[in-house]
Design a protein around this nucleic acid. Structure first.
Lengths: 315, 315
DNA sequence: CATATCAGTTAAATACAGCTTAACTGTCGC
DNA sequence: GCGACAGTTAAGCTGTATTTAACTGATATG
């Protein structure tokens, strides 16, 4: 049990030697002479009471003891290294790495990147577009914009206003499809990126708000929200657009939402960062800019009657 | 990235301080004076460029940097410690820890413990009865006797002869239930510990080998094999006994298996240890004793017609 | 077959990290 | 106000870790 640990530098030397399977290369990695490394390994072997390496002609190989120790040692130094880097990163107030889903990154963050850079030239902003749930330390990320029904326990989290979906299309298409009923003839575009929601939030649900019982079967399906919006932008059809994904295009007039009923999505975006980091200069700057930027297109939401999904009558 | 790590002793001091939330207790743990610990922390903070602890009146608390570093450091030293202990354990040739399921431990290993101890007085044998799949390093175990359909890739593994099941009961009950058909009236005992097998290996399957279509619904159910055998031993009914669990009692005559048909179980016991440890003195001694002991009751298997489960005709 | 080279070891000298003792600061509880 | 407590600081010592330089023994090369 409480067998005290051997000298840590010796363990680090062993780790390097085991990873490289060469004392010479290990010595190089640690910026010491091969002699020093040889001593370290020898000292460790004395502490253990058994050899860790079998010295062969021009190579070394691990003994059973070495093979037992090596993986744990590698893990340990890996873990120390990431943790230390993460702590170092906190010292840096000019870098900021933000992760968000591919859709939001493409449709909301990327188009505004230039504007943020102009407002905060001292901050080097980076994006990491992934859906993977994240570990701020391991993934070297400072801020996450997450969408879903999850909770953010253990993190600092600020909800962004509620999401809704409503049909969107190019202004040209809007001249043809002027009533909800006319959409029954329209080419519909499906965004599967929010299929995981319960209750679902799809075309049949929106049609129900119009008193229409219709489950469309044909149309283009996209696994990512931004691709669905891009298809709508190209005039390919009518998409059920999520607020966060389409407000930029609605604001610019590239898309229109002719029907003034929207379905509230039973999930929301949250601005998430590690507890206690919310006031680091670059995170605070980004957070304030981010929420101010959202407010700029808030007026769009006011144009809609947003119906909570549970208030929609089944047909 | 390649930010070199700070002095490792300082990191260890930080780990201890963060775990205890007290420099004094950390110093005690590391067998150094509080002054030394204070210097270590200070040195680490200089390397980092930021404080790790906030010094309060009579306590310390972690800063954000400290909170970022602490979990990784704790993991790292934990990992080092287990790996080191595992390597140390390899030096010890007098201890042997064996893990097996509760059933085998109770019905096979425990009754033979005394015999092994007499044959190998120099070896201190310990049992760890658990079903959990194991990590030899983390769980401080040398040998595992595992039952199942799994593979043992990455380990040294030796299969034990095939398992089968056949009805067993006390000699007294055997006077009443002399034919397979008579079992339809017998109180049956169910061992649910092998319910996970596919295809299943239960009463209906054994009855099919006798041309009987019978799915019993009543009877005592046990989640562990040894409890089912204990029930049979007490005369409470007829159990479907697994070879490994009942051969000791059959050999001793405490149980009898009047019907000479057994169903081969589609899974087997394996003797498993870490690669390269199979010839450590105590493991080799145990292994040889173990397989020799099994051979002693091998004659029992010869008394049965063992039918592979896939050869049993469906009814 | 001699020779250069490569990987690791050993010896002796040295530098410095890390430790200790001892005295000090500030706070809390009595 | 006093003593106890938690952590800090200063000065000096100890021993670990490192370097230089020479050595071993195996392998490749001309």
């Amino acid at each position: 049990m409480s067998t005290r640990l051997p000298p840590l530098t010796a363990l680090r030397a062993f780790d390097a030697a085991a990873r490289h399977m060469s004392f010479a290369r290990a010595a190089e990695e640690l910026n010491v002479t091969p002699a020093a490394l040889s001593f370290q390994i020898k000292s460790l072997e004395e502490h253990l009471g058994a050899p860790l390496f079998r010295r062969l002609n021009r190579a070394v190989e691990l003994t059973e003891s070495g093979r037992t120790l090596a993986p744990g040692a590698a893990d340990a130094f890996q873990s120390l290294s990431t943790a230390w880097n993460a702590a170092k990163r906190l010292q840096n107030n000019t870098n900021l790495t933000v992760t968000a889903g591919p859709g939001l990154t493409a449709k909301w963050l990327a188009p505004r990147l230039y504007e943020f850079a102009r407002a905060h030239p001292e901050i080097d902003l980076r994006f990491s577009a992934t859906l993977r749930m994240l570990d701020f330390v391991r993934d070297e990320v400072d801020v996450a914009i997450r969408f879903g029904q999850g909770t953010d326990e253990g993190y600092w989290s600020q909800p962004i206003r509620r999401e809704w979906v409503t049909p969107v299309m190019t202004p040209e298409l809007a001249e043809t499809y002027t009533t909800p009923e006319s959409l029954l003839q329209a080419p519909l575009i499906f965004d599967e990126s929010i299929n995981f929601l319960k209750p679902p939030c799809d075309w049949p649900v929106w049609f129900r708000t119009q008193g229409i019982d219709y489950t469309p079967t044909h149309g283009a399906h996209f696994s990512q929200a931004d691709h669905a919006i891009d298809a709508a932008l190209s005039g390919a059809g009518v998409a059920l657009g999520r607020r966060g994904m389409v407000n930029t295009d609605l604001h610019a007039g590239r898309l229109v939402a002719p029907f003034k009923t929207a379905v509230e999505v039973p999930a929301s975006f949250r601005f998430v960062c590690a507890q206690g980091t919310e006031n680091r200069p670059q995170i605070k700057a980004f957070r304030e800019w981010f929420f101010a930027e959202i407010e700029k297109t808030a007026y769009i939401s006011d144009q809609f009657t947003v119906i909570p999904i549970e208030d929609i009558p089944p047909l």
